[in-house]
Lab assay of single mutants.
Amino acid sequence: APTVVALYDYTANRSDELTIHRGDIIRVFFKDNEDWWYGSIGKGQEGYFPANHVASE
């Protein structure tokens, strides 16, 4: 899976979202739409995150 790096912190608001912190490396499983992508950090943490909070490595 491609990876991206978090540019900003984001705290999940729902159970299907992913909390990310600046500098996190996120594996992107799919891009649901322009605004929300689905991916994982490490083991067990996965969910939707805002695409405008990340950039290609």
Rank of each mutant, 00 (worst) to 15 (best):
K43V: 13
G47V: 01
K31P: 01
Y38E: 03
Y38H: 04
I20R: 02
N33L: 02
V28A: 00
V54P: 05
P50G: 00
W36M: 10
D16H: 10
I25A: 07
D35H: 11
A55W: 09
S40R: 11
D24L: 05
G44T: 11
G23Q: 00
V4C: 08
G47T: 00
K31N: 13
N13A: 12
V4L: 05
G23T: 02
D9N: 07
D9C: 06
V5H: 06
L7G: 04
R14S: 12
I26H: 00
R14N: 09
N52F: 03
W37M: 05
E46Y: 10
S15H: 13
N52H: 07
P2V: 14
E17V: 02
D9R: 02
I25F: 05
G39K: 01
S15L: 08
E17I: 05
N52D: 11
T3A: 07
A6W: 03
G44Q: 12
V4D: 03
R27K: 14
H53R: 12
D9L: 00
T19L: 00
P2N: 15
T11W: 08
E17S: 02
Y8V: 09
G42V: 08
A51W: 06
W37S: 00
G42Q: 09
T19F: 04
E57M: 15
R14M: 09
D9W: 00
D32P: 15
F49S: 03
W36V: 06
D9K: 04
Y38W: 09
I26G: 05
A12T: 04
P2M: 15
A55M: 12
P2S: 15
D35V: 10
A51I: 05
Y8N: 07
D35W: 07
F49L: 04
I41E: 02
G42A: 12
S40K: 15
E46C: 07
D35N: 12
N52G: 11
T3F: 08
Q45E: 06
I41H: 05
V4G: 02
T11M: 07
G23P: 02
E57L: 13
W36N: 02
Y38G: 01
K43Q: 11
V5E: 10
A51L: 02
Q45T: 08
D32Y: 13
A51Q: 10
E34L: 06
I26Y: 06
W36G: 00
L18W: 03
T19P: 06
T11L: 08
F29S: 14
P50D: 07
H53V: 15
D9G: 07
F30P: 03
T11N: 11
K31T: 09
R22H: 04
T3V: 11
R22D: 02
D35E: 12
R27P: 06
A12D: 00
G42D: 14
R14C: 14
V4Q: 04
L18S: 05
A6L: 02
I20F: 13
E34W: 02
A12K: 11
E34D: 12
V5F: 09
E46A: 08
K43F: 09
S40N: 03
V28T: 05
S40W: 08
W36I: 06
W37P: 05
Y48S: 02
A12E: 03
I20V: 10
Y10A: 02
R14A: 11
G47F: 07
T3E: 08
L7R: 09
N33V: 03
D35R: 09
I20Q: 02
D32V: 12
H21T: 12
Q45L: 10
W37V: 01
I26L: 05
W36R: 15
G44A: 07
N13K: 15
E17H: 13
T19S: 12
Y38F: 14
G39S: 02
I41M: 12
I26Q: 01
D32C: 09
G23Y: 02
L7D: 02
E57N: 08
D16L: 05
S40A: 15
V5R: 11
T19D: 06
A12M: 04
A55T: 15
F30C: 13
